[in-house]
Design a binder for these strands. Structure first.
Lengths: 245, 245
DNA sequence: CAGTGGTCTAGACCACTTC
DNA sequence: AAGTGGTCTAGACCACTGC
C-alpha cells in the first residue's frame, strides 16, 4: 500500500489535528476576534497532549495571522480592530511616505441578482442575492479611489447604507463586529487600465488617464470567499507597495 | 538600568545567535546555493547547544526562504536554479492561467555613472559605476515587458552582454552562479502610467496606452540592495497577481 | 506573586531517503 | 541499516504582565 499514484497525506501529525480543532473553534466563533483563547496549559489538558504540541499548533496559526501571541498576557484571536491591522490589506501609500486616512463617500447601495462571474467566485447558490456597494475614497480633498464591492446577501443580511455611513473605522472591522465575519486573506489581480467617462468623472481626471485596477477576492476562515472588491486607484501621487519574500 | 527610553533588545535568545552565525556562513559563501548545510546534530555540536535550539534557528531561516528543508536528505541553501523558484519574483501571469516562458531581447548594455537616485538606493560610494541593461521580453511573438536594470559595477564586475545572451535561465540564477549573489527579497512600487513614444515603440502599442510600472529594489543576504529594476508591463492579456496574508 | 508565553534541554521514537 | 529531518514528551527555568 505504499506506491499510490496520488500519495494522499498518509500521516497526520498530532499538532495538525490540534490546529484543525483550534480552527474549528475560530470558525464557530467559540472565541471572538480580540478575545484571548485558553492558555497553552489548558489546551494541552483539553486535547490530552503536551504543551509543546499545542505550542506548535498555535505557532502556525500565529504565522498565518489568525492568532496573535502576547508574552505574559495570552494568545488572542486576530482582529481588524487593532491599529496595526488597518493597513494590512491596504497597499496604497502616498509617494511621499506616511500613511494616510481616507474619507468615504458612498455612491450606491443595492441588492441585486449577481452575474455569472460574481456568483461563481462567491460560490453562491442559484437565486442567492448580492449586496453591491459603490464608493469613492478621498484624501486631502482629492478623489483617489473608486471601488465596487459585492457581498453575499445571506451572510450580510440586514446590512444598510446608514450603518455603513455611521461606521467610523475600516470596513473589515465593521464586517467583524456586525456579521461575525473576519477576513483572513485575499488575492488580488492588478492591471493598468484607461479611465472611461464614468471613472474619469468620479476621480476628476481626463478620460483615458492610466489607472490601477485591483480586483480582490477576500476569504474568511476555511477559505470561504465572502467579498469581491474591484478598485481603481489614481496612482499619480500614490503607489501600490508590495514586498516579495 | 531598566527603564530606557529606547528599550534595546535587552535579551537575545540562543537560537537568535545561532541564526546570526548561520547567516554569516551564508553571506561568506561557506555553503553555496543548492548545497546541503551540516546536519542538525553536527551544528548542535559545533555551537554547543541542543538539537532543538539549532532546529528553531533553521526553522526561521527556512520560513524566510533562505534555507530549504528536505526530510531524509538534509537542509539546503535556497537557490534560484530550482524549478519552483523561477516564478517567485515574477508575479506577471497570463489572464488565461498557466505560466508562460518569456523570451529575452537585449536592447542596451552600458557602464555609466549613476544618477543620484540610483546611487542612493544602491548605497554606492562616490565614483562607483553601474551597469545598465535594457531588455524587452516577449511571449508568443508579442512584446509584453520592457525593463531597465541597474547593477553595481563592483559586485558585477566582468559582466558582459554576450554572457547574458548565452544564459538560458532566469537572471537571478545567472547572478547566483556567476557573481555569488543570491537574491533574498525585493520591494516593489506599482503605478499605472501612459506609454510614451519610446515605450509605445518597444511594446508595439499606441502612445498613451495604460501600462503597469513596477519599480523593484532587490536585496541579498544582510539586506544589501544589489539590483534596481524598472519594468513596464502590457497588462491587456496578463496581470500582476498578489496574495495578501 | 501568580499566570502567561518563551527558551532550552535530553531523550525517545517516527518518516523519509539512500546505499 | 544508517543518516537525515520531523514529531512528541516532560521538565526546568526565563521574561513579561498584571494584580
Amino acid at each position: 500500500m505504499s506506491n499510490t499514484a496520488f500519495p494522499v497525506p498518509s500521516f497526520s501529525p498530532l499538532y495538525e489535528q490540534i490546529k484543525a480543532m483550534l480552527l474549528t473553534s475560530l470558525q464557530t466563533s467559540e472565541w471572538l476576534p480580540g478575545e484571548a483563547i485558553p492558555s497553552e496549559m489548558e489546551l494541552a489538558v483539553r486535547y490530552a497532549v503536551s504543551q509543546g504540541t499545542v505550542r506548535k499548533a498555535i505557532d502556525e496559526l500565529a504565522a498565518e495571522n489568525l492568532l496573535v501571541r502576547r508574552q505574559g498576557k495570552g494568545t488572542f484571536v486576530a482582529t481588524h480592530q487593532e491599529e496595526d491591522w488597518q493597513y494590512r490589506f491596504l497597499r496604497l501609500l502616498p509617494d511621499s511616505g506616511e500613511k494616510f486616512y481616507l474619507k468615504n463617500e458612498f455612491l450606491a447601495f443595492e441588492i441585486i441578482n449577481p452575474d455569472a462571474y460574481i456568483a461563481k467566485v462567491l460560490k453562491l447558490k442559484a437565486g442567492d442575492l448580492v449586496i453591491r456597494i459603490d464608493r469613492v475614497q478621498t484624501f486631502a480633498g482629492k478623489s483617489i479611489v473608486f471601488e465596487e464591492i459585492w457581498l453575499p446577501e445571506t451572510r450580510f443580511h440586514g446590512l444598510t447604507l446608514e450603518a455603513l455611513i455611521a461606521w467610523p473605522g475600516p470596513m473589515y472591522a465593521f464586517y467583524e463586529s456586525h456579521f461575525a465575519t473576519h477576513m483572513v486573506r485575499a488575492e488580488e489581480r492588478i492591471k493598468a487600465i484607461p479611465a472611461d467617462t464614468q471613472l474619469a468623472g468620479y476621480l476628476h481626471l481626463p478620460v483615458g488617464t492610466a489607472l490601477l485596477s485591483v480586483e480582490r477576492v477576500a476569504f474568511t476562515y476555511g477559505n470561504k470567499p465572502v467579498e469581491i472588491r474591484h478598485a481603481r486607484y489614481d496612482t499619480s501621487e500614490q503607489h501600490y507597495e508590495n514586498k516579495l519574500n
